[in-house]
Design a protein around this nucleic acid. Structure first.
Length: 553
DNA sequence: CTCAACGCTT
């Protein structure tokens, strides 16, 4: 791989990408967004030329380094109104970290149990109590959520009375484990312990913490620990900066992304391929493919070679814009470049077809990449792959079939408990994604009690719900319609310190609208605006739908 | 191989 020619083939790819991006959408793929953007480009070509000229001048003024993030990115990201843009604030006092503990207590409360119209049946209740008794007796067996799976740790007692981490490496390993479980307080306690001992935390320790907060989009704390790191005389490295850039891009805070990038360059730290992949990833998620293409040429300019992730990110972006055939074209380019087709690329292709409801082809792709050894090597599916596959399988299935799959899933979990390796291609342990997929599948077939059932099963196994899980629960209540329960869940989330996004508010509004309670719907909308959350397209359609019905009554 | 990138919601 190292022997292949450098710049020539790369510049060919850039040309291909540029051609792909600027080419009109082929007739068999329909995406309103792309078409309108295209016509915009045509009708404004003179404006655009002027715009670019200004960009060039601005770039020379404010950016001295050729690898800087383009200034236009910020403006466009703000305009994309994908997310609200928080302002950087002062450092927060330590006590505020309680919100994670609050979440734990929220989970203990099992909020869906009490006044929920879809009641829990007896079998679950018994299995719930028996399982929680296993967990609470911390004697011989401990169940833990690890890497998205529930695992049993036998001989817990023998391992546990350890003296704790002794070296910096030990500590860092523990910190990493805690961060992976999203137990930030635990991770922080390790760092504080280190700081109070002679083992000073090193760059890895602080970076783990900073990246942990970045992943949770908690940039206030990420920034705070970045300061603490510097105050303690530890120099941030490229991992630290990449993590910060990732976090800022997650919350659409381009100004701070750019600042971080610039700081890194000033310190003479070169961005790596991962840094660019992160930027490209957020570009295709929140902006468009052509912005990502610009980063692609930046990374080539910097002498880096795109890898399978780079291609996968770009293919994903093309797929999202409805350019499925062009994603495949890029895939062909990638093979020509001898870049190894890995599981990420294969899964991305599957995901593209699932997204476009071409589920049978997605399943065929799974066979091709992950199940057939003929020709090339057989890839190993990850839990992500399995989830995409499950979504494809479940998409067109009858309700009874979904019940069967769910039973299978629960049986697999029991097998896991006995340490038998699971051979299922669809499930991978008790992942929140698997549960959520089933919840959505049951919701779509109006099997509301099953939505609740799956949620309970998930809780019983101590799998933490995500925002999406809550969104589906709220959707279920909106469907009934039981707007009060929607509001209750929303408030619980707020109380746990989470900031509900536009999707959650819109679901509550739908619930009010469906119940015919227009005033409350408008009030929810006002609350959302007050929380500085920009309405989305579907928010507006709910509003409009509500006002039309209101008028006719 | 003690640190970084991917999936689920209207």
């Amino acid at each position: 791989m190292s022997s292949r020619p450098l710049c020539f083939s790369h510049s060919v790819i850039i040309d291909v990408l540029r051609a792909i991006v600027s080419r009109p959408i082929s007739s068999n793929t329909t995406t309103v967004r792309c078409c309108s953007a295209k016509s915009y480009r045509h009708s404004n070509s003179r404006h655009q030329a002027l715009f670019w000229q200004q960009q060039q001048q601005q770039q020379q003024l404010s950016w001295t380094n050729p690898h800087c993030i383009t200034p236009s990115l910020g403006r466009r990201l703000y305009a994309s109104r994908a997310l609200s843009v928080p302002v950087m604030e002062e450092e927060v006092p330590e006590e505020e970290e309680d919100r994670w503990r609050d979440l734990e207590s929220l989970i203990e409360q099992e909020p869906m149990n009490k006044d929920h119209s879809c009641t829990l049946n007896d079998t679950t209740a018994t299995s719930a109590s028996s399982l929680s008794s296993t967990t609470s007796s911390k004697g011989k067996l401990r169940r833990e959520l690890y890497d998205g799976r529930i695992i049993d740790i036998p001989g817990y007692k023998l391992i546990k009375p350890k003296r704790g981490p002794r070296t910096v490496q030990d500590f860092n390993r523990s910190i990493k484990e805690a961060v992976m479980d999203h137990r930030m307080n635990k991770a922080l306690s390790y760092v504080r312990k280190m700081e109070s001992q002679e083992l000073r935390p090193d760059a890895v320790s602080y970076t783990l913490i900073i990246n942990g907060f970045s992943k949770l989009s908690d940039m206030k704390r990420a920034h705070k620990w970045y300061h603490r790191m510097k105050r303690n005389g530890i120099e941030p490295d490229v991992y630290t900066y990449t993590g910060l850039i990732d976090g800022y891009m997650r919350i659409a805070d381009v100004a701070n992304s750019e600042n971080t990038f610039r700081t890194m360059m000033i310190k003479g730290i070169r961005p790596t391929l991962v840094t660019y992949n992160v930027l490209m990833h957020h570009s295709v998620r929140q902006l468009d493919v052509s912005t990502a293409v610009r980063f692609w040429s930046r990374l080539v300019d910097a002498g880096l070679q795109p890898d399978a992730y780079t291609f996968a990110i770009m293919m994903h972006g093309l797929g999202d814009e409805g350019r499925v055939d062009q994603a495949w074209r890029l895939y062909e380019e990638m093979k020509k470049e001898n870049v190894d087709v890995n599981h990420v690329v294969a899964t991305t292709l599957m995901g593209i077809h699932v997204k476009h409801h071409d589920n049978s082809y997605a399943i065929e792709l799974f066979r091709k990449f992950f199940n057939e050894s003929g020709g090339g090597k057989r890839l190993a599916p990850t839990s992500y792959t399995r989830n995409v596959m499950l979504n494809a399988v479940v998409a067109n299935a009858k309700l009874s079939t979904i019940h069967e799959y769910y039973e299978q899933f629960l049986q697999e979990l029991d097998k896991d408990k006995d340490n038998k390796p699971s051979r299922s291609l669809l499930f991978s342990g008790a992942s929140v994604y698997t549960y959520t997929t089933f919840m959505r599948a049951f919701l779509r077939r109006d099997a509301l009690p099953m939505v609740s059932q799956v949620y309970q099963d998930m809780r019983v196994r101590h799998v933490k719900p995500t925002m999406v899980t809550y969104a589906i629960l709220m959707l279920t209540h909106a469907y009934i319609p039981d707007p009060d329960s929607c509001v209750r869940i929303l408030n619980e989330l707020k109380h746990a310190g989470f900031k509900p996004n536009v999707v959650l508010y819109t679901i509550v509004m739908r619930a009010w609208a469906k119940a015919g309670r227009w005033d409350e719907m408008k009030q929810t909308y006002a609350d959302m605006k007050a929380a500085n959350i920009e309405p989305s397209k579907s928010t507006m359609s709910v509003l409009q739908w509500g006002s039309e019905h209101n008028r006719f009554e």
